[in-house]
């Protein structure tokens, strides 16, 4: 499966409060509303700039550090971001993203710049930066996470298998 889109670049240590502020996330389960405020405190224009289905968040180290709230990956997904690509992820965010069906890719994002066109080959574990003409390796997910993601998230996986089936 291939994903394509434009890179929106962010720094190291983007925490869950920056992804979606406590001002919004505690009072609603309406992810469409939360998606309007995603990344607002880092880039107030972000939710307007993002083209749904054609955008990647590209970040540095420790993306998603902070709270355990799934509103963070859900708001990113709802905004139409295809995948988050980062140098590394904070533990809880990484799991939550997969559980809600948001693709997360770990690789060396150092050379990717804002606006670069990317093509991700999930089978080959490769990102191709069309502007830089460079290929970046992605760290494969553990098998159980691949399966959860393949079902579109843990809720669908759990419903299908009735529990956790380890490979």
């Amino acid at each position: 499966m291939k994903l394509t889109g434009k890179a929106y670049k962010f720094s190291d240590d983007i925490n869950t409060d920056l992804i979606i502020s406590g001002r919004y996330k505690f009072s609603t389960l309406d992810m469409k509303e939360l998606a309007k405020h995603v990344m607002e405190d880092v880039d107030p224009e972000f939710s307007q700039k993002v083209k749904p289905g054609e955008s990647f968040i590209v970040a540095g180290r420790n993306f998603g550090c902070g709270s355990s709230r799934e509103q963070a990956p859900l708001a990113i997904k709802e905004a139409g971001v295809v995948a988050v690509i980062a140098q590394s992820f904070a533990r809880i965010f990484y799991r939550n993203a997969v559980n809600v069906g948001l693709t997360v890719l770990e690789g060396d994002t150092g050379g990717i710049e804002e606006g670069d066109c990317l093509e991700v080959d999930l089978e080959k574990h490769l990102i191709r930066d069309e502007d830089k003409k460079k290929e970046i390796k992605i760290k494969p997910l553990p098998e159980i996470m691949v399966r959860v993601l393949a079902e579109g998230g843990l809720a669908a996986y759990f419903k299908k298998y009735g529990g956790f089936k380890l490979p």
Binding site: S68, R69, E70, R95, N99, V100, L154, A155, F158, F164
Partner: peptide, 20 residues
Amino acid sequence: TGVGSTDLAASLISGKLWFK
């Protein structure tokens, strides 16, 4: 340890969770 809401729902139902 802290988990998200979906992991939590799975453990509410099954009393189990996967861990690395």
